[in-house]
């Protein structure tokens, strides 16, 4: 028994890796479609956007790169659909250097989107008037403070090299305080900066959508009301997709909703692995392993 325990406890990582691979692959090919519920932190964010009126301006900060595409990009696409459907005007920017590629692609995809009847409902939207993509600028906190004083000063030109000063959208909302909220979709720690350097200074609501990994650290902000909504990870994005009703818009579940089964399978495997490891650990208690609390 002790030998078995030793073998199990020192299992080659590659065996674990293979099982993880299978747990993801099988549900993707044969989904089982578990139902899920919408959590209040996601609903709060959705409802804030839903409560805005046609013509209102919001800031979407796409602070995620291609590496976090799976978790964050579906959220961006769902949000753009929600905005354009309601006539809300997004000012999109990104604070990380590998952000513009995806932010631009998502925007173009949604603008070119065709519904079931072949109509293109967002075709008439104009850059600079109904939306604007400002692109990337280095500086992080400095940019947040900068747009608090004026968008056009910080971003003299947009991503398409158009002068921003002439844009109607910035006549209505020349600075951060004139917008209705900041929606930060982040795979890096920028929400920590958006609150003190951006939204608290401008006195506007903040919604954070982040990778699941950083969600726990933003709960204090949600609890304190500094963040109106908190959309964490693929599950949060799937919930948002269901609120926006992406299935009705595009005819099939959004990418986040589709991935949730694989998610469940891996979680169950990891928990089983932890339980098995602990059973054998108790059997083989004499040999402590490395790692642990400082």
């Amino acid at each position: 028994m002790h030998n078995l325990a030793k073998i199990i406890l020192n299992l080659d990582r590659r065996i674990i890796y293979s099982v993880v691979m299978l747990c993801v692959a099988i549900p993707l090919i044969r989904p089982f479609g578990l139902p899920f519920r919408v959590t209040p932190e996601v609903r709060d964010g959705y409802e804030l956007i839903e409560s805005l009126k046609e013509g209102d301006v919001i800031v979407i900060s796409c602070d995620y790169g291609p590496s976090a595409e799976a978790e964050t990009h579906p959220m961006y696409v769902a949000l753009l659909h929600q905005c354009f459907r309601k006539g809300i005007r997004p000012v999109i920017l990104t604070l990380i250097p590998d952000g513009p590629g995806l932010a631009n692609r998502g925007l173009e995809d949604v603008l070119a989107y065709q519904d079931a009847e072949g109509q293109k409902p967002y075709e008439h939207l104009e850059s600079g008037k109904d939306y604007v993509f400002l692109g990337f600028k280095t500086g992080g906190q400095a940019i947040m403070i900068g747009i608090g004083q004026g968008f056009t000063g910080t971003f003299p030109t947009d991503y398409n090299a158009q002068e921003t000063a002439a844009m109607p959208i910035f006549r209505d909302a020349p600075k951060l305080a004139d917008t209705k909220c900041v929606f930060d979709i982040a795979s890096v720690g920028y929400p920590d900066f958006w609150i003190p350097y951006g939204t608290e200074r401008a006195g506007i609501p903040f919604i954070v959508s982040c990778t699941a990994v950083s969600a726990p650290q933003y709960y204090p902000y949600y609890a304190a009301g500094q963040a109106t909504g908190l959309i964490g990870g693929m599950k949060g994005a799937a919930e948002y997709e269901s609120l926006v009703d992406m299935a009705a818009i595009t005819g099939s579940d959004g990418p986040a909703t589709k991935g949730l089964d694989a998610q469940s399978a891996v979680h169950v495997f990891i928990i089983l692995a932890i339980i098995i490891a602990n059973i054998f650990y108790i059997i083989d208690r004499r040999r402590p392993l490395s790692g642990g609390v400082a």
Binding site: I16, V20, A273, A277, Y281, G291
Partner: peptide, 13 residues
């Protein structure tokens, strides 16, 4: 995804 599974397996004791 792989690394977190093996980290959980080894460290969650």
């Amino acid at each position: 995804a792989f690394f977190i599974a093996s980290a959980a397996f080894r460290a969650f004791r």
